[in-house]
Write a protein that binds this DNA or RNA. Structure first.
Length: 349
DNA sequence: CCCGTTACGGTTGAA
DNA sequence: ACTTCAACCGTAACG
């Protein structure tokens, strides 16, 4: 129970193990795009430079300011579809070896090398789930409420990382571009989650706290790379202050409460090294602008009005390294080849 | 001084 | 209901 956060060396408040509030993440990106050096951003927002570095790097890479998906488990490779195939193989050839099944799964395109179960997994499946073929009418005793979406998809379709720590798995290039960029993780998201048709009532989350987005992390990560480059800016902004919303829904948000200017906040040249800290509660002690921004949370109905790029301060992700003033902005499409608009997003637009 | 990287102690959530 | 485990977090420190 994080309760009240800690104070870092710069006087900033943080909660160990938890992501920085989106308002601050956004501010970091905003300031960087104004040409402020990361070291100054770090001092001004009182966020460790490592964190600033990481957030900016991630933004450049994914186009999102949002933190990654925390918790949960990797998608299981032994999806119902895979189990079903294994059962079929076993039925056709009761003497088949696990390694032969494995080869067949690969050969038949049921799995690819990323989601191919190990021999021991197959053995376990044979033992635990298929043991008595004649009695087995259901391949899984405890079927999940929602079967995993398209379980036969290659593993990396389901589990491609945004993180720089995990490079794009090999073989990705061979995949269809529009698929390869889809990031549907955590897998545990139900089909309805992924399709963005979760009921609105579920989006009515009690919005307490200055502390952002109890449920955001995993949500935020979804479809991160999904976004049409042109909408990336709006997308990330819209996601920011409506942390509890489904990605698709929140991306449809009107960017209300957005700081249309950071100029009042940014005093690039004349920043006092360490403004007086006011560590009241975690993240409330940041700048007035910021906390107002954080606590605003005046998010609107998920079917909010259309996005307006003009409400967005942020340029698409660009290379901060080479960023002088925000002049030579690459079309993000180059950075994010998957410029397909997610159906839900498109609908929202 | 700046900044990329990483060990560390932490939280989270599916299995 | 509880535990495990692997994901992610930001900070601090190193280079």
């Amino acid at each position: 129970m994080p309760a009240f956060g800690e104070v870092n060396q710069l006087g900033g408040v943080f909660v160990n193990g938890r992501p920085l509030p989106n308002a601050i993440r956004l501010r970091i990106v905003e300031l960087a795009q104004l040409g402020i050096r990361p070291c100054d951003i770090s001092r001004q927002l009182r966020v460790s430079h490592g964190c600033v570095s990481k957030i900016l790097a991630r933004y450049n890479e994914t186009g999102s300011i949002l933190p990654g998906a925390i918790g949960g488990s990797k998608p299981r490779v032994t999806t119902p579809t895979v189990v079903k195939h294994i059962r079929t193989y076993k039925q056709r050839d009761p003497g088949i070896f696990a390694w032969e099944i494995r080869d067949r799964l690969l050969a038949d395109g049921v799995c690819d090398k990323f989601n191919l179960p190990s021999v021991s997994s197959i053995s376990r499946i044979l033992r635990n789930k298929i043991g008595n073929l004649s009695q087995q009418s259901h391949y899984e005793s405890g079927k999940p409420p929602h079967p995993p979406p398209q379980p036969a998809l290659p593993y990396n379709h389901l589990y491609s990382y945004p993180s720089s720590k995990v490079p794009t798995p090999p073989g990705m290039a061979a995949l269809p571009g529009h698929m390869a960029m889809h990031r549907i993780w955590p897998s545990s998201h139900s089909v309805t989650d992924i399709l963005g048709i979760r009921s609105i009532t579920e989006q009515q989350i009690s919005d307490s706290a200055s502390f952002p987005c109890a449920k955001l992390e995993e949500r935020s990560a979804i479809n991160r790379t999904h976004f049409p480059a042109a909408a990336a800016c709006s997308a990330l902004v819209n996601g920011v202050d409506n942390p509890h919303l489904e990605p698709e829904a929140k991306y449809a948000q009107t960017p209300s409460g957005l700081p249309n200017t950071v100029s009042s906040y940014v005093t690039a040249g004349s920043i006092p090294p360490y403004p007086p800290p006011t560590p009241v509660s975690p993240y409330m002690g940041f700048s007035g602008t910021s906390s107002a921004f954080v606590s605003a949370h005046t998010w609107q109905a998920p079917n909010g009005s259309a996005l307006s790029p003009h409400n967005c301060d942020l340029a698409p992700p660009i290379a901060f390294k080479s960023m002088a003033p925000a002049r030579d902005i690459h079309p993000v499409a180059n950075i994010h080849p998957a410029a397909n608009i997610h159906p839900a997003t498109a609908a929202a637009l």
